[in-house]
Simulated assay, not measured.
Amino acid sequence: MTCLHLPPVPASVGTARKWAANLLPDDIRDDVGDEVVLVLSELLTNAVTHAATAPPSGTGAAGSVEDIEVEVVVDPGGGHVALAVTDPSDQPLPAAPETVEPEADHGRGLLLLDALAQDHGWAPRVGGGKCVWALFRRPRVPSRDGRGGVRGPAVVRAGCAGG
């Protein structure tokens, strides 16, 4: 499969939301789909906001138009979903703010990430930029033999690492 590459423009957020929602199987969408799509939207909005001020990889010049890369990985057996958004900004992911003023137009994305994802983090890219990721664990589902637990290790990749 191919990775979803998007230009760093606001319209890319809606495109990525629809793309990700369509990748999720119905049962996973019912359990964690809203959370996955909302966090993806927030991460991509941050990437779009900061990508325009990031230097192109290896140049040190401002004004990058490098694409943002989005990946969604679904484990249908266990119902886990991982997402990653890679952008050209070398700025580390800041800590979520303690509070956001009710009248503020922005600033809630990292709070939502903390609240909705079971785990998340970021890593710098070798050639510049960073990858921000989030993991969503679906509630435990009964196995096919009825003993409980999560089902098999099958993984369906959609995006960058898929092949």
Results as ranks from 00 to 15, higher is better:
residue 128 G to H: 05
residue 65 V to Y: 13
residue 56 P to N: 11
residue 82 A to M: 09
residue 71 E to Y: 06
residue 87 D to E: 14
residue 15 T to F: 04
residue 20 A to Y: 01
residue 71 E to M: 03
residue 13 V to G: 01
residue 43 L to D: 00
residue 85 V to G: 03
residue 138 R to V: 02
residue 80 H to M: 13
residue 67 D to T: 13
residue 141 V to N: 09
residue 85 V to T: 08
residue 37 V to W: 00
residue 36 V to I: 07
residue 61 A to T: 12
residue 153 P to Q: 14
residue 100 V to L: 13
residue 100 V to N: 10
residue 86 T to H: 00
residue 108 R to T: 11
residue 60 G to C: 09
residue 129 G to K: 02
residue 43 L to T: 05
residue 48 V to W: 03
residue 78 G to Y: 05
residue 157 R to Q: 15
residue 31 D to M: 13
residue 94 P to E: 03
residue 103 E to R: 14
residue 106 H to G: 12
residue 148 G to C: 09
residue 90 D to E: 02
residue 29 R to D: 07
residue 118 Q to S: 14
residue 130 K to V: 05
residue 81 V to P: 02
residue 75 D to A: 14
residue 146 G to V: 06
residue 84 A to R: 03
residue 122 W to N: 00
residue 115 A to G: 11
residue 118 Q to R: 14
residue 108 R to C: 02
residue 126 V to Q: 15
residue 26 D to Y: 03
residue 53 T to P: 07
residue 135 L to K: 08
residue 20 A to C: 08
residue 60 G to V: 07
residue 27 D to A: 10
residue 80 H to Q: 15
residue 130 K to Q: 01
residue 87 D to H: 14
residue 40 L to Y: 07
residue 18 K to R: 11
residue 49 T to M: 10
residue 115 A to H: 07
residue 124 P to F: 01
residue 112 L to R: 02
residue 99 T to W: 10
residue 103 E to M: 13
residue 68 I to F: 00
residue 144 R to C: 01
residue 94 P to V: 04
residue 118 Q to A: 15
residue 139 P to R: 11
residue 37 V to N: 04
residue 26 D to P: 10
residue 43 L to H: 05
residue 111 L to W: 08
residue 123 A to Q: 10
residue 70 V to W: 01
residue 84 A to D: 09
residue 101 E to N: 11
residue 14 G to S: 07
residue 100 V to M: 10
residue 155 V to H: 00
residue 149 G to E: 08
residue 74 V to F: 00
residue 17 R to F: 02
residue 139 P to Q: 06
residue 15 T to A: 05
residue 17 R to K: 14
residue 62 A to M: 13
residue 154 A to C: 12
residue 83 L to W: 05
residue 128 G to L: 01
residue 48 V to C: 00
residue 113 L to D: 04
residue 114 D to I: 11
residue 54 A to G: 06
residue 114 D to W: 08
residue 130 K to L: 04
residue 126 V to G: 14
residue 35 E to K: 06
residue 39 V to R: 02
residue 83 L to P: 05
residue 21 A to V: 13
residue 158 A to T: 12
residue 98 E to Y: 13
residue 58 G to I: 10
residue 76 P to Q: 07
residue 100 V to Y: 10
residue 157 R to I: 09
residue 142 P to M: 07
residue 106 H to V: 09
residue 17 R to D: 00
residue 22 N to I: 10
residue 137 R to Y: 11
residue 136 F to R: 04
residue 74 V to K: 06
residue 59 T to L: 07
residue 145 D to I: 02
residue 19 W to L: 09
residue 102 P to H: 02
residue 49 T to H: 13
residue 38 L to G: 04
residue 87 D to C: 14
residue 21 A to K: 06
residue 68 I to K: 08
residue 115 A to P: 02
residue 40 L to G: 04
residue 38 L to K: 01
residue 39 V to F: 01
residue 118 Q to N: 15
residue 46 N to L: 05
residue 134 A to C: 00
residue 150 V to G: 13
residue 96 A to Y: 07
residue 54 A to R: 08
residue 28 I to L: 03
residue 58 G to M: 11
residue 130 K to W: 03
residue 98 E to R: 15
residue 148 G to I: 06
residue 71 E to N: 00
residue 40 L to C: 02
residue 50 H to F: 09
residue 149 G to V: 02
residue 145 D to N: 09
residue 31 D to A: 15
residue 80 H to Y: 12
